[in-house]
Design a protein around this nucleic acid. Sequence first.
DNA 1: CCTTGCCTCCTCATTTTGGAGGATGCGCAG
DNA 2: CTGCGCATCCTCCAAAATGAGGAGGCAAGG
Lengths: 257, 257
Amino acid sequence: MLTTLSGRETKLIFAIMQDMTAIQDARQLRLQLGAHLLDLLEADYFASFVWTRTEGDTDAVFLNMDERNLAAYQHHFQHCDPITPRFRMCRRATHLDQIISREDFLRTEFYNDFLARDGLHQGMNFHAYAATGHLGDLRIWRGAGKDTFQQRDLDILNAIGTAFGQALANMRTNEQKQREADPRLRLAAWAARHQLTGREQDVLCLVSEGKRDREIALDLNISVTTVRSHLKAVFQKSGVTSRAELLASINARLSLQ
Amino acid sequence: MLTTLSGRETKLIFAIMQDMTAIQDARQLRLQLGAHLLDLLEADYFASFVWTRTEGDTDAVFLNMDERNLAAYQHHFQHCDPITPRFRMCRRATHLDQIISREDFLRTEFYNDFLARDGLHQGMNFHAYAATGHLGDLRIWRGAGKDTFQQRDLDILNAIGTAFGQALANMRTNEQKQREADPRLRLAAWAARHQLTGREQDVLCLVSEGKRDREIALDLNISVTTVRSHLKAVFQKSGVTSRAELLASINARLSLQ
DNA sequence: CCTTGCCTCCTCATTTTGGAGGATGCGCAG
DNA sequence: CTGCGCATCCTCCAAAATGAGGAGGCAAGG
């Protein structure tokens, strides 16, 4: 790749560089990035999906697209979208024409009933991947009457997309670390691992706050012997033999176990 | 700022954007960034200092500079460096000529005995700040016989420096979070907060692993009563009244206290 | 209807822990 | 030398926690 950048483009590239380092929220980043990308690539429509860790769940961000049409995508067209799966297979910025012939494209229900309504004619996508799998994408479209995207546009999107993928991966990693460090989540994960019942979890939770049986009984409005029963069950299920060991077990980093 | 970029420059800018998002280690980032910046700005020497959280301590990275001369800087010239403090006061990329007149500069001991030895003649600095204070810098120098830096170079360094500052600040924040989440450091901090003696810390450490008095005594090769004595002192000093409460106190987020 | 799981409560025995007080020895700074 | 802090050990006692075993009620599901 060897392309020059105009003053306007340079300014936008630098703005994008700032976005990438300054914004730590995936949604915010994509909104900002989207605005700058539309400007930079002289495009009209922007969409970005990010795959969350819970399988199949996506977080979507859009610019200049019709709310109702989008709802239609989320409910229906998403499932019969013939182009996104093909875009997704490409690890570089990819032009619509590279994955489907113009004639075939113009014949699809997807184009006629969905894309055309918003005026989307020319598109490029970038799909970001990490070692763990698909992270998210950047989708750039131009309306009717504009020129098609050039190799130069693809190169620019590719460079920015790569950095965007890194930024997304970093956010993902940070969120993961945050989650692992959150005491409440650790507790919940530990409880789930040992299949504790609701009441056992209640007791566990108060034990983890350093409370005594008597206090726990008061807090939960049950008798001390009941607290002991639940706690006994927790010990039984987890193979632990004292509160201190219990807390140590909960706080132990999984990687060190 | 409105400047065009050549193909070569564009390529380097994109490489720098990758650096900024891909590299999570401050040292690595600066080495990589330094190489790309020298190429981009057609400069010869690169140095970058990063201020660590411990007051006054710096981590330095260099390219193309003489090891022995650097040692001299760390030991002596650092303390009589007449230009860095002035550079440091500027919140934008700054040219040497903007902070000192050429004549004055050429008369300084610092130039003659230190910079000139490595061949440093023209310089620009960027100093990065966060809300918490000074983060670090980027120092770019050209050797004798080259043109002086132009406003265009300053603009480029400024844009990259700003993003670099963000990246540094992010690393700082992440490290901080990591530290707060590290059980050993939490323990040490807690111990320090309550002014525990060495032996008390030893006992505390084993208690935090969920061990019983008897086990601790075996581990430390002392009698159970001694363990109890130490533990009693820990309780006394910290105002806590049970092991479980102790562990809860250690694991409590400071912000929630 | 009957089983199963969960929550609730109980007793009795044992171990562990916490609290109070004191004692010895050692090294170090005033 | 004389405290002082620290580590080591002790006794005695009471409170808390653990372990084993059992029992009644209640709701959901076969």
